[in-house]
Write a protein that binds this DNA or RNA. Structure first.
Lengths: 231, 231
DNA sequence: CGCGGCTTTGATGTTCATCAAGTAAAGTGG
DNA sequence: CCACTTTACTTGATGAACATCAAAGCCGCG
């Protein structure tokens, strides 16, 4: 996906309805004045664990991964962020250093506003604060549920689960290009790169999916669901 | 621990400073009028996944576990809640049915207020809303970090990690009574009951800890930390 | 064009879950 | 309060699931 560079006004932003729906006109004008747009190419690191976050980021276009890095070069992807999601909201309130790293899986366009402005808005607009609370709750519930679902599955179930995840949740199609490498896929579902590849090959041999590099086509969705559920 | 039954006023509550510090006197009076105290014995189920939550709970005394139940009788403990923590805040805003189950690990005293009142307070008191946001962020950051730390460890490391967790975080002592059964311990750190027991025995044989039923005494804390870090 | 990272497959070994079986502890009903 | 049942705890043996190691082809990039 190619992200556009045009300097957009928050007033006309199609995503206004999602995050900033409860802001008044004058508040939105402040947001617009303060707003910065930043473009990141696929693979670029947006922020590193431990960074001071003085701005609040919001994904307009693209795809982003949130991850934690382990000691021995092993990292774990916590979540994948799609447009209309915010990034690092939690840390904004609890501590000023980021608890995880962020990088672009696809070319991505991010908007950001100063944290202080966000806090000012929160404190002066109750409905806005309430909306943020709700979004934050949703986001974290999803992450925790996801982690739970991954953990209770065997490897084959995990691969099936994540293919369905990409198909249903991210691309809304039975045919899509994986936005992640095999290694990253492994990091999403707690397994090794080799086993990701092995099981993908098995699924191909069994006629469940078709693979061509990063392109995945689901041939037998029902079977995939069964594998996801029972192993 | 024996929880007291005396009907306490929120005005004089020692935990007022934590959760309700930014409420004005008149708001606190409303809370106090609406407040209910409920006592739960060790082992009692407080709420089940899927329950409608019309009240917002807050742990005054005791210890509580938050968990999810799997299909084949296997459940997973998401977190242990100590006094001053709230319960089920997320679901209050995103959906009305609870996403997990809650039960008492020790005799516990819970306070609760009506969700509607909480929402009213949030909407009329910006600083209060902001405090809740911060607490919510902290809570979820802890849960996610914890899950990450468990997952990257081998079994011996997990046992060491959780013993340190109880010692440092919950009981602040090198000697304590486990509030959980071996089975529950297994559910906290993603392993089987048998292996929990096995590894505890190993630690005992190696002189790292002493075990007497539920009572754990840490003999070699430095070694325990090493095991937690390296495996 | 050569180097490093990503991908793939196979062989090997280890970690861990499962099964089994027995003891201790704790709740239950007469 | 004691026999009875159930639940928690414990240890050992076995096998399966999975990580690690190794080796080779592939692709993009300087």
């Amino acid at each position: 996906m190619q992200a556009s560079f045009s300097p957009n006004s928050c007033i006309n932003c199609p995503f206004r309805s999602v995050l900033f729906k409860s802001l008044r006109e004058d508040e939105l004008i402040k947001v617009n004045e303060n707003k910065q747009e930043q473009f990141f190419k696929r693979g670029e690191i947006i922020a590193k664990e431990g960074d001071e976050m003085t701005r609040f980021f919001y994904l307009r276009e693209g795809l982003i991964k949130i991850y934690k890095e382990g000691e021995n070069r092993r990292s774990q992807i916590i979540s994948i962020t799609t447009p209309k999601d915010f990034i690092g909201l939690t840390n904004l309130f609890s501590s000023n250093s980021l608890g995880f790293s962020v990088s672009a899986l696809e070319d991505s366009l991010l908007c950001s506003i100063n944290s202080d402005l966000l806090i000012t808005l929160l404190k002066q607009n109750n409905q806005f604060a309430f909306d943020i609370l709700r979004m934050m709750g949703d986001t974290y519930n999803k992450i925790i549920t996801n982690s739970f679902e991954i953990n209770r599955r065997h490897l084959r179930g995990r691969i099936a689960y994540i293919i369905i995840y990409f198909s249903e949740y991210i691309y809304k199609s039975r045919e899509f290009d994986l936005p992640v490498s095999r290694k990253e896929m492994a990091e999403m579902i707690e397994m090794t790169t080799e086993n990701v590849i092995r099981i993908l090959s098995e699924f191909r041999k069994d006629g469940v999916i078709e693979i061509d590099g990063k392109k995945i086509t689901i041939l037998n969705f029902e079977l995939l669901q069964k594998i996801s559920r029972f192993g």
